[in-house]
Write a protein that binds this DNA or RNA. Structure first.
Length: 431
DNA sequence: GTCCCTTTGAAGCTG
DNA sequence: CAGCTTCAAAGGGAC
């Protein structure tokens, strides 16, 4: 846990926060759009802590009770479930949830609708029927269609010749509390109330969240259809040499935090754009105490451990550079067809960074920039920073670029700020 | 349909 | 080994 150790154990949370925000001023104003002023943010920070504590206290008891009850019959039923699961394996390659890691109090972090937020209407419903251990249903990884044998069995694990370290005893790795695999460490108990399986999610019907269908995209927009996995007509496809399913990276601590808190932030500030949400979440993340963050680091570590055990031969390398390759291929295709040049996503210049396409504001991503030209006219003979050919101030309002950072002086937030225009002259409030 | 944005952290890659 | 890059999630927006 680099974050936990990097601070040297001192109380440097505030410093850490300052360091992490490279463009604080700009980000601040973005957040203001939805009542996230600095003042509010300060309130938010304190309220977050209270919120967290409140949630912990109010839900902890109920959650603990629930866990205890459900844990009682787990060990016997777990074996039962394994049998059940193995039967399901015959029925569909995506139908089985991996049952071997009940210690992990995660909802399926890879299931698009598997929000962990307590405020999310998608979630927060404990569905641990079927005599399953509550955690069993949350197991995020399914290995069935990937590895022929159940990965949770040490013998199977050892059979896989791999370059990743393996452990047959996870508890040894994480110092799991006494009580077995199904019990969460006390410090993690708070998490369980929100890390619940989504409604309607059958425990054994969860496709592996980290595995993308062979035909699926790697992109985050690739919301694989859960139903698709259940369709029996998928089966005949296996006659052909199936492509290796894409196994996604395990989520890190912050990603887990985002998963849980996203819906909450959305509800609080009516924002919907993920970029803005993520900015807020980033701030909240820094506002968390070390103890609160530690919970997520712990979860993330378990997540990685689980992932490692399930896919010992998987490496982040497997997914590394795929997007880039795809993009490169596309570019090659487009360059081979000069008759249909890519449209430049140009907006009028908003920055002067030399490695950006000034007009486009698309760092190294503007097709024309990559092809050696600018979207519009500007060039600099000495190679210095290239200014925008058309200042936002120059154009009529209708031609102004979209807001990068909402101008809080404008009631309607219809204008933009940028590093060049911290207080744009065309601000509605000035016009 | 695809990509971008935006965040942090982990891991891979590169010089 | 340090520094950079990519990818995890999310979903609206742009094209």
């Amino acid at each position: 846990m680099p974050q936990l150790s990097s601070g040297g154990g001192d109380d440097q949370g505030a410093n850490d926060e300052m360091i992490s925000f490279k463009d604080e001023g700009e980000q601040d104003e973005k957040i203001q759009e939805n009542a996230f002023t600095e003042r509010d943010l300060a309130d938010l920070k304190s309220s977050l802590v209270n919120e967290s504590e409140t949630n912990q206290s109010s839900n902890a008891a109920a959650v603990r009770r629930s866990q205890q009850n459900e844990h009682r019959g787990y060990q016997e039923k777990h074996r039962e479930h394994l049998d059940s699961v193995s039967k399901h394996q015959d029925g569909g390659m995506y139908k089985t949830a991996y049952p071997g890691y009940p210690f992990l109090m995660l909802p399926d972090p890879y299931i698009p609708n598997g929000s962990m937020s307590p405020s999310s209407n998608k979630v927060s419903v404990v569905q641990q029927s079927h005599g399953m251990h509550p955690l069993t249903s949350l197991l995020p990884y399914s290995n069935d269609h990937f590895n022929p044998s159940p990965p949770h069995l040490p013998t199977d694990m050892s059979q896989k010749g791999v370059h990743r370290p393996q452990s047959q005893d996870i508890s040894g790795f994480y110092s799991l509390p006494p009580g077995g695999v199904g019990q969460m460490p006390p410090s993690m108990g708070w998490f369980s109330h929100s890390l619940m399986l989504g409604p309607g999610m059958h425990p054994t019907g969860i496709p592996h969240p980290a595995i993308m269908p062979p035909s699926g995209k790697l992109d985050h927009h690739d919301h694989y259809d859960r139903n698709m996995y259940a369709k029996p007509h998928q089966e005949p496809k296996r006659e052909k040499e199936p492509k290796k399913p894409v196994i996604k990276k395990p989520l890190n601590a912050f990603m887990l935090y985002m998963k849980e808190m996203r819906a909450k932030v959305i509800a609080e500030c009516t924002l919907k754009e993920s970029a803005a949400i993520n900015q807020i979440l980033g701030r909240r993340w820094h506002a968390l105490t070390r103890e609160e963050q530690a919970k997520y680091y712990e979860l993330a570590r378990k997540e990685r451990q689980l992932h490692m055990q399930l896919y010992p031969s998987w490496s982040a390398r497997d997914n590394y550079g795929k997007k880039k390759r795809r993009k490169r291929e596309k570019q090659q295709d487009s360059s081979a067809d000069p008759g249909s040049p890519k449209k430049c996503r140009a907006r009028f210049g908003l920055n002067q960074q030399t490695d950006w396409c000034g007009p486009c504001r698309r760092k190294k991503k503007c097709i024309r920039y990559l092809q050696g030209g600018w979207c519009t006219s500007p060039t600099s003979s000495d190679g210095s920073a290239i200014d925008s050919p058309l200042s936002p101030v120059d154009g009529p309002l209708s031609l102004l670029p979209p807001c990068i950072t909402p101008c809080t002086s404008c009631p309607a937030n219809t204008h933009l700020l940028s590093s060049q225009n911290p207080q744009p002259q065309n601000c509605l409030s000035k016009l």
